[in-house]
Structures are given as C-alpha cells and as structure tokens.
Simulated assay, not measured.
Amino acid sequence: MPNRVYISFLRLPLLIRILLIALLVFLVFGISIHFVEPKTFPSIFDGIWWAIITGTTVGYGDYVPHSLLGRFIALILILLGAGIVSSYFGTLAAAAVTKQDALSEGKIAFKGEGHIIIIGWNERSRELIDKITRSTSPQMVVLIDETLEANPVHSKFVHFIQGKGHVDETITKSNISVAEKVLITADRGNDELQADMNSILTLLTIKGLCSKVKCIVEILTAEQVVNALRAGADEVIQSNKLTSVFMVNSLHSNGDGLLSDFVHQLQESRLSANTVNENEMGKTFIEVCHHHLKEGSLVMGIKRGEETILNPSHSLRIEKHDLLLIFK
C-alpha cells in the first residue's frame, strides 16, 4: 500500500508534488512547535500559521519561539522552507514560461469553439486575419501552417498551430468538430498543380475528421475545381480566374479602376445571401429592392437554385426558395 501511494505521488506533476511537500512540512513543523511551546503557540492553527510565515521568510514576528528546542525547530524550518518555497515558485515560473513558449510555437491545442480555421500563411491570409481581428466584433482565428516557427500575429484572437494541414494530429489540435468554417489557401511556393493537390489532400483530411464543417478552398488551376468539389468543398475560390477578371477589366477600361474601387468597398462591407421572408414572396424584384434600400442595404441580385442572377428584370417575381444577394 505505501509503495502504491509513493508511485501515485511520483506520477503527479512536479509543481503539485512540491506544493504537497511544502504543505506537509508546514503542517509537521506547525504541530511540533505547538507541543514544544504550548504557551507561546496556544493552538495548532497558531503553530501552522507561524510555520507558513516563517517558512516563506515573511516573518511577521507575531509568534516567536523562546526555548532552545523551539528556536532549533525554527532554524531547520527556515533552511528547509526557504528551499522548498523557492523551488515551488521557480518551478511555477518555469512552467509559465514553457507554456507561453509552447503556445507561441504552435504546440498547444485550441480549446474554444465557433472559430475560423485558416490553413496556410501568406499575404492573403495575413490581410484576412487582420480584417477579422480588427472588426467591431472580432472572431477567434486558428492559423495552421508548417513553415512558421512562431505565431506571426500578436493578437489574443489568433491561435497558432504549427504542423501540416493534411495530418490528422494537426487538424485535431484545431478543435475542428466545433469550428464554424475552414479556409484552405493555396501554397504559391509550389507549382500550381502541386499546390492544388496539397489543398485537396488537406480538404480530404478535414472532411474525414468532420464532414459537417464548411470548407472554402482556394484552387489555382481550373482543372482541379471539379476534384475539389468531389472532395467535399463547400465553396471553391479560383484566385487566378479572379485575377484575370481584374486584368481584362483594366485592359478594356479607361484607367478609371472602377472594379478595384468596387472590391475595395467589399472589403469594408459584406455581400451575403439572405433567405426570403414571407412578406417578400410573390413581390417583384424592384419592390424588394426598395424595401431593403429603406433599411440601408442594396439588393444586387438573386440566387435561384444553382443559378446566380445579377440585376435581374425589375418585374421578376421573388419565389419561396430564392436567396437575396444583399450588399450591406
């Protein structure tokens, strides 16, 4: 039985072991001084109080042993207690520093929920994280990257995890089961096809661990869009296609940069797809537009099934399952 208790004690964390030893020392010396000098220390509590104050080198002086044996006990307590207490606080400080370093280096698992997971560190994810954390209602972001050695963003709303996105252990650390969304960015350090293969592999890993989480994937080559959808992507962003749209618009414009200005406005506002309420069903598109304009939002079009219609006919009737594309 004693051997089992000793083994159980050794399995405790070092900080807990030192604390238990310190409490035992204070208890033993506090009880001892009470029996050695009962007049000076009327109760066991007074003895324990004196032992704690003396062992921690605070020394209030409210209780002082007068006998030779009592002073000898105090001397041993000072020597023993100072070592134990300093070891305890030293270990506590070391543990705090170690945990802080592990957190910065991406070795600590995330425990929250309702967060956004961003996989891959690049200029796009940097700007996105900056906008999310600086908004009026910032949301927690978990950044996963294998190339970084420490968290690149100094914000309490960003938790960094170091590792490969297609490894189960790394994804599990992000608490994927209770995440709101996942954004997989393309690694432009590789060739485009290899970058898309890595993104799709990461997507398969995530969907294998949690199929219900919404995944947005950046794909560079048009040929791999269908494979990303087959792998379970809820939304595919073709960044190269978006870039080509900007270039074509710039070539055919008079240098006014209207598309760039429009996208800049999107950065400050949000385009969302809202379900139609009962009052809007059966009304014309222009009637719904007027209603939302009074509320300070602009209806740009509708999404009907798989079809997205921008600026539809004003006489188009809104149906039950339509989604309104609203710019706020």
Rank of each mutant, 00 (worst) to 15 (best):
Leu10Gly: 10
Leu10Ala: 14
Leu10Met: 15
Arg11Gln: 04
Arg11Tyr: 01
Arg11Ser: 08
Leu12Pro: 00
Leu12Ser: 01
Leu12His: 00
Leu14Thr: 12
Leu14His: 06
Leu15Gly: 05
Leu15Asp: 06
Arg17Trp: 08
Arg17Leu: 06
Arg17His: 06
Ile18Ser: 03
Leu19His: 13
Leu20Cys: 08
Leu20Pro: 05
Leu20Trp: 10
Ile21Lys: 03
Ala22Gly: 14
Ala22Met: 11
Leu23Val: 15
Leu24Ser: 14
Leu24Gly: 12
Leu24Pro: 03
Phe26Met: 10
Phe26Arg: 05
Leu27Asn: 08
Val28Leu: 11
Gly30Glu: 08
Ile31Val: 13
Ile31Arg: 01
Ile31Asn: 04
His34Thr: 14
His34Gly: 09
Val36Gln: 01
Glu37Cys: 00
Lys39Gly: 05
Lys39Asp: 02
Lys39Tyr: 02
Lys39Arg: 02
Lys39Ser: 03
Thr40Val: 05
Thr40Gly: 01
Phe41Asn: 02
Phe41Gly: 06
Phe41Val: 08
Phe41Ser: 02
Ser43Val: 10
Ser43Pro: 07
Ile44Gly: 09
Phe45Met: 10
Phe45Val: 12
Phe45Asp: 05
Asp46Met: 10
Asp46Pro: 01
Gly47Trp: 06
Ile48Gln: 06
Ile48Glu: 09
Trp49Arg: 10
Trp50Pro: 04
Trp50Gln: 04
Ile52Cys: 13
Ile52Glu: 11
Ile53Ala: 15
Thr54Ala: 15
Thr56Gly: 09
Thr57Glu: 12
Gly59Ile: 15
Gly59Lys: 13
Gly61Cys: 11
Asp62Trp: 14
Asp62Phe: 15
Tyr63Thr: 09
Tyr63Ser: 10
Pro65Glu: 04
Pro65Cys: 03
Pro65Ala: 00
Pro65Phe: 02
His66Ile: 05
His66Gln: 06
Ser67Tyr: 01
Leu68Trp: 12
Leu68Gly: 10
Leu69Pro: 02
Leu69Lys: 03
Leu69Asn: 03
Arg71Cys: 06
Arg71Ile: 06
Phe72Ile: 09
Phe72Pro: 00
Ile73Pro: 00
Ala74His: 10
Ala74Gln: 14
Leu75Ala: 13
Leu75Pro: 01
Ile76Gln: 00
Ile76Ala: 04
Ile76Glu: 01
Leu77Cys: 11
Ile78Ser: 13
Leu79Thr: 05
Leu80Thr: 11
Leu80Pro: 05
Ala82Trp: 07
Gly83Ser: 04
Ile84Cys: 08
Ser86Tyr: 03
Ser86Gln: 03
Ser86Ile: 14
Tyr88Asp: 02
Tyr88Gly: 06
Tyr88Ala: 07
Phe89Ala: 01
Phe89Leu: 05
Phe89Arg: 03
Leu92Asp: 04
Ala93Asp: 05
Ala93Ser: 11
Ala93Ile: 10
Ala93Gly: 08
Ala94Cys: 07
Ala96Trp: 09
Val97Lys: 09
Val97Glu: 06
Val97Ile: 11
Val97Leu: 08
Val97Arg: 09
Thr98Trp: 12
Thr98Cys: 11
Lys99Leu: 15
Lys99His: 15
Asp101Gln: 07
Ala102His: 12
Ala102Pro: 10
Ala102Glu: 15
Leu103Val: 14
Ser104Arg: 09
Ser104Gly: 08
Glu105Ala: 13
Glu105Tyr: 04
